[in-house]
Simulated scan of single mutants.
Amino acid sequence: MPEPKTIEVYSWPTPNGHKIHIMLEECGLPYRAHPIDIGKGDQFAPDFLQISPNNKIPAITDPDGPGGAPISLFESGAILVYLAGKTGQFLPQGDRARYDVLQWLMFQMGGVGPMLGQAHHFRLYAPEKIAYAIDRYTNEAKRLYGVIDKQLSKHSFIAGPDYSIADIAIFPWLRSWQNQGITLEDYPRLKDWFDGIAERPAVQRGVKVLADLRKPITDDKAREVLFGKTQYEKR
């Protein structure tokens, strides 16, 4: 059987990037990580926009896609589903269990990521402290943590008895719980789950990918690229 071909990963050490790093490590697939420095504007380069038209990381190219033809993908949730399908790992085959996982993946994509991202923005990066926004998104973060904690009172993992792409998607977003105004001990079942996921060797390897390149966002140029008019220019 031929060796699997190397997957090219265009990414940065953010929660969405780490989802894919962790998944690739868990699946044991060969990959090469290419840094897309979002503070410098690498995400707007024409070559990157060819595979990620929404100018967001991560994106991948797999030379051995469906039918043996190359494929490029953006959106971290879609990439997780693709890699699960490619390897037959971390997404159940049975319809009921599969949909259980997919609904919690969508919960992360539509709720956990956007809302915790807003909590980070208004608590850490906004040029002015807006009390309404800070309270709104901190409270939403607490609500989401509560939803997860309640779900974990029923199952060992997010979507059932087995570790899945739902866990892989949610975990990286909770690593910055302190910045979200969260006290992890307030969610004991979530904390136990979080600590267990953090001990997995593949997770430990995944969160180190490109991590030494990331620096705190302190300069005005990086803030403008990430949050200012550069983000909204037509391309």
Rank of each mutant, 00 (worst) to 15 (best):
G65Q: 01
P92M: 03
P92D: 02
H18A: 04
A84E: 00
T138M: 01
V203C: 05
K56S: 06
P216Q: 13
E128T: 09
G94P: 07
K56W: 05
G94V: 06
P46V: 03
H121I: 04
S176L: 10
A198P: 05
G94E: 15
I158G: 06
G67H: 07
D95A: 11
Q50W: 08
I197A: 04
I130T: 04
R223Y: 13
P216R: 13
I168V: 15
R136S: 02
L102M: 11
Y10G: 00
Q180W: 14
I168W: 06
R175D: 05
R189N: 13
P58Y: 14
D100C: 08
Q180C: 04
S11Y: 06
G88E: 12
G28R: 01
T6A: 07
Y187D: 06
K229R: 12
K215W: 11
K142D: 05
P70V: 12
A169T: 00
R189T: 11
D186K: 13
K40C: 13
D195E: 15
M109I: 01
G39F: 14
I134F: 00
L105F: 03
L190I: 09
P201N: 08
I148P: 06
Q89C: 05
P35C: 05
D100G: 12
G65T: 00
K40H: 10
D100R: 12
H21G: 03
T218Y: 12
Q43I: 04
T14Q: 11
T218M: 11
